[in-house]
Design a protein around this nucleic acid. Structure first.
Lengths: 268, 268
DNA sequence: CGTTCGCTTGAGAGAGGTCAAGTTTAGTGG
DNA sequence: CCACTAAACTTGACCTCTCTCAAGCGAACG
């Protein structure tokens, strides 16, 4: 379940280095990070990195794989708060008394770089650039949450599903720019989609059929194929002012695509 | 509209000092903050502190009054993202190119302490404690957004309205512990409530009538009276594990009350 | 004393939920 | 390589919660 592994990756070629907390650290600063690491973990798909309500004494850098934050309501319903990709920082939650209000679960097998909290705090003081970077990453999460809040609050089921898929589509491309353009592995079930946007999986299914019949996208068994990006952007009700040229990565050179705040930050 | 005031408050007795960014700074550090301030503002109720899409070159500390963050969808609908109280930091948004995705509007007349962004960044490097504090404040916003996401995604209208009102009730008490217990001034219209939880104001009205008829609360013309805290906690579907003794501040010494992550942090 | 903003209430419609029964896919063991 | 199983997806019928539209009322402010 919770495998404590030998150091799974070298700091110098880690996703957190290009994307995450350690971005643009000097070799000297990186050495301090390496020293603070201990208890790195491999978590298999479907298991919790940490459970809701648990006391998390460790900060994790997600090095490889997909995961999601979620909370459980009184009646057992699950709300997915956001999906996280390599470079994300997990476990920085209000650390007083009552444990984290949310949990994190692995969607695929996941590799984590672990830094015990007490080391982490002194690291923050020691390497101020890392503190500023952390603030940025958390502000990005906040923006993503705000974005989803607008989506859940005001959009129809159809628009919401399109919005979520487009968000993930764009974030993937920003993260792995060399992958295939219109097809991708998206390790979610329709139930995950529903739990993220506040719909039942049954209704998500109906919406996906609609979008498939309209030739906009196909999403079967974790395989996503986007057939018409422009119409997807349109259905997702993305603010056109936020649409950004992405011609370099798409077949159609004139295609405009939305780059949400998160993706934009990642792209930088 | 946008009044540039003489320094509206002295740093030593400012809300940000007890609550916000400047909490627990030494006098020496505070002097640096004072030096960085310029262009403090008074914004009247109903006006924007900054508009969605605008480029915000200033960090604001909310010193006095209520405000809310919001975003506007393509079709003009407004989603309220959260409500902010004195001590909040406004304007720290992804600063690259395309401006803030959300705006901030004053609910009451509002006093703001302003720090130009370039001063702010060097201040962060100069006073690392402030950076850590900033990270905390943003993480708190994120938690609040996660909390609302769960609410909007999974709760019924009735539960959501109760949840929001309870959240504000608790945050107010944490912020102004000496105020009256069961009655408070809550500067929102039913439309604000609706825009925050994703309901129409018409339906919010129906829900409030229900809660009034059941003797749980009364909310008329910005005046909130909570008649039965326990039942409100119950309707709001708050995780009982997060309920915390609050007897010192309530008439009924045995009353349990939820203290959400935000309130808890403020209380510290 | 009138105007405006916010609150209130009703009737009808529609989006999405619930329940229940299949079908497809991927994974497992023989 | 094939049979079997569990998880995920699919579809239909019905029902309910919330929205929409519309009209009226009350309070606050000039």
């Amino acid at each position: 379940m919770t495998v404590v592994a030998p150091i799974p990756v070298d700091c110098t070629m880690c996703a957190a280095r290009s994307n995450g907390l350690c971005k643009e650290l000097t070799d000297c600063e990186l050495a301090k990070v390496r020293q603070a690491r201990s208890g790195d973990r491999l978590v298999p798909a479907g298991s919790d990195v940490f459970a809701p309500g648990s006391h998390c004494h460790t900060i994790y850098n997600l090095v490889d794989g997909w995961a999601f934050r979620y909370s459980i309501l009184e009646d057992g319903q699950r709300q997915i708060l956001d999906f996280v990709l390599p470079g994300a920082v997990l476990g920085f939650c209000s650390a007083n008394g009552s444990g984290s209000t949310y949990g994190v679960q692995a969607l695929t097998n996941v590799t984590l770089c672990a830094i015990p909290k007490e080391h982490f705090l002194s690291l923050l003081r020691d390497v101020p650039e890392m503190g500023i970077r952390l603030t940025w990453l958390i502000a990005r999460d906040r923006n993503l949450a705000y974005d989803r809040l607008s989506s859940i609050g005001k959009l129809s089921a159809r628009e919401q599903v399109a919005h979520l898929i487009l968000e993930l589509f764009i974030r993937c491309h920003a993260q792995w720019p060399n992958h295939a353009i219109n097809e991708m592995y998206l390790p979610l079930t329709q139930e995950h989609v529903g739990d993220a946007v506040g719909l039942t999986s049954v209704h998500v299914n109906r919406v996906l059929r609609e979008l498939r019949e309209e030739g906009i996208l196909e999403f079967h068994y974790r395989h996503l194929r986007v057939l018409n990006v422009d119409r997807l952007v349109d259905v997702a009700k993305i603010d056109p002012q936020l649409a950004v040229q992405w011609s370099s990565k798409l077949h159609e050179p004139s295609t405009l695509i939305y780059l949400d705040p998160a993706a934009r930050d990642m792209a930088l």
